[in-house]
């Protein structure tokens, strides 16, 4: 019993840290321009497909295609910001919410058209197998994805706190008008944040492609879960998103284990509703 519980906790940390990376990408966009990107999950799907095609066409392992995924998604993010999102930023709030639904439906179905709705898998990734640590089984690709996610999250954290550009992003997040008056090019910061947020989810996609099924609808659930994580962590809070990501991983895995696997995502949503009921601003907001 204790062994199984330990195994479940390990599993939840492994998935929770990847959730955290996905959510940090989302919270950066949300925090800086107050835009909820419903296509975030589909960006993840595109990251996974990028890794898949790098592997299939160029024999490039996901471990080495991480920079490719980051670059592709960065460009996609900047493009979508420039040509679509920035056009509705001054419009009514409802249009800002709806527009990214359009992007999401467009991207998911473009993937269906280009690559069929089939499930795919990277068959022989460089990292595979499991380590046995006592009674706990540790999947090597999952472990690598988790460690990678934590490292990337930490890098983002230091980028925001230590570099000039990072501080400019945080300044815009705090007060857009004041940042503009201080000579920060807020429009540039917007597209940069959208690009970085998308690149992060692209990296998460590369990590996930090492062990997760890849198909056009894979992003939907990840997208919804990352909204809950972001809102749970608090508006635009990187630390909050990280903690909430781990927390949601725990709820999902332990809930599925103790309660009913069919309800594990329902529990995630329930925890979200209860939390915002008690703290409408989220944990760290």
């Amino acid at each position: 019993m204790a062994d199984q519980l330990l195994q479940q906790i390990v599993n939840s940390l492994l998935i929770g840290s990847v959730y955290a990376l996905v959510a940090i990408g989302l919270t950066l966009i949300w925090g800086v321009m107050n835009v909820l990107n419903f296509a975030h999950g589909d960006f993840l799907m595109l990251g996974m497909f990028t890794a898949f095609w790098c592997y299939t066409l160029f024999k490039m392992d996901p471990l080495f295609s991480i920079p490719v995924c980051a670059a592709v998604l960065f460009l996609l993010g900047v493009g979508i910001y420039r040509f679509i999102v920035s056009k509705v930023m001054k419009g009514p709030g409802l249009a800002q919410l709806v527009v990214t639904f359009g992007v999401s439906i467009f991207l998911a179905n473009l993937a269906v058209m280009l690559w069929t709705p089939d499930f795919r898998l990277i068959e022989k990734p460089l990292l595979s197998g499991t380590w046995s640590l006592g009674s706990v089984q540790l999947s090597i690709p999952k472990f690598a994805a988790s460690v990678g996610s934590v490292l990337v999250s930490a890098a983002v954290f230091f980028f925001l706190k230590r570099t000039r550009t990072g501080k400019a992003i945080l300044a815009v997040e705090m007060n857009r008008d004041a940042a503009l008056l201080m000579g920060i090019n807020t429009e540039r910061i917007n597209s940069l944040s959208f690009g970085i947020g998308s690149a992060l989810v692209g990296i998460a996609g590369a990590f996930l492609s090492m062990y997760y099924y890849i198909h056009p609808q894979v992003g939907g659930l990840f997208g919804l879960i990352s909204f809950c994580i972001v809102a749970l962590g608090g508006f635009g809070s990187i630390e909050g998103a990280f903690i909430a990501g781990i927390l949601i991983g725990l709820v999902q895995t332990l809930g599925g284990y103790f309660f009913d696997p069919a309800y594990k995502y329902a529990l995630v949503f329930l925890v979200y509703l209860i939390t915002v009921w008690i703290r409408p601003q989220g944990l760290m907001g």
Binding site: V88, G91, A95, F101, G102, I105, A111
Partner: peptide
């Protein structure tokens, strides 16, 4: 093929941008 949904998604984007 997903083509109908691609058109639908495009429509949503156009409405949001031009007729919000």
């Amino acid at each position: 093929s997903g083509l109908d949904m691609i058109i639908y998604g495009t429509l949503i984007m156009l409405i949001s941008v031009y007729q919000p």
